Simulated scan of single mutants.
Amino acid sequence: MNTAGMLAEAFDRVGEAVHAAVEGLGPEDLDARVDPGANSISWLVWHLTRVQDDHIADAAGTDQIWLTDGWADRFALPFDASATGYGQSAEEVAAVRVESAELLLGYFDAVQERTLDFVAGLEGHALDRIVDENWSPPVTLGVRLISVVAEDLQHAGQAAYVRGMLERA
């Protein structure tokens, strides 16, 4: 398996986990929080998608589709359109409410498509390119992509856990 194939497989697994956590749920379940400080499925999937959109756009030298393809307007969240969810308060988490699973998955699928297009063209040495010098050591493209996969899978798993809790309640 080559580099591009391995990355595509990793991101495909993220997509499978996200769809399994979201499909078939209505807004009430998507926005439910098991306690006042907990993250909802809506927030978890929105956040993992925002981070993926932000990081892939930065690495690819493109704009985030959240900003350019109307997703920020469709979600109509009550905070700055550049927000990705990092450092948000419990009140901000509660403000991420969606009208449908289709909206949430529509944004995820659009970001996923762009991600898969980006990684399809990568070869081994491309992963050594420095993409963020704000860290010591500087972050390479390979490290950034693995970080995105790891965070995405963690949050998709959390969303699946919340779904399981809601289904058993």
Results as ranks from 00 to 15, higher is better:
113 E>G: 10
17 A>R: 09
25 L>H: 07
36 P>A: 12
148 V>G: 01
72 A>C: 13
45 V>F: 01
9 E>K: 15
54 D>V: 15
87 G>V: 10
90 A>Q: 07
150 A>K: 06
12 D>P: 01
81 A>Q: 08
41 I>Q: 04
96 V>N: 00
129 R>A: 11
152 D>I: 06
101 A>Q: 01
109 D>L: 00
3 T>W: 03
63 D>R: 15
142 G>E: 01
163 R>M: 14
140 T>Y: 01
119 V>W: 00
70 G>E: 10
126 A>N: 12
156 A>I: 07
116 L>N: 02
71 W>V: 07
38 A>E: 09
17 A>L: 03
29 D>L: 13
107 Y>L: 02
43 W>K: 04
128 D>I: 07
59 A>S: 12
127 L>T: 10
139 V>I: 07
41 I>V: 15
76 A>G: 14
155 H>C: 06
65 I>D: 06
52 Q>P: 13
135 W>M: 11
90 A>I: 12
128 D>Y: 07
163 R>V: 15
72 A>R: 11
75 F>V: 09
13 R>H: 08
54 D>Q: 12
158 Q>I: 13
32 A>V: 15
130 I>L: 06
23 E>W: 05
85 G>S: 09
162 V>P: 04
20 A>G: 08
38 A>W: 07
59 A>N: 05
64 Q>H: 08
13 R>K: 13
145 L>N: 03
133 E>T: 11
125 H>G: 14
3 T>E: 07
144 R>A: 05
125 H>K: 15
6 M>C: 13
169 A>N: 13
146 I>H: 04
80 D>V: 11
48 L>C: 13
24 G>T: 14
151 E>S: 11
96 V>K: 00
20 A>N: 09
27 P>M: 08
124 G>F: 08
103 L>P: 00
31 D>Q: 14
57 A>V: 14
149 V>F: 06
59 A>E: 08
87 G>P: 02
146 I>E: 06
53 D>C: 04
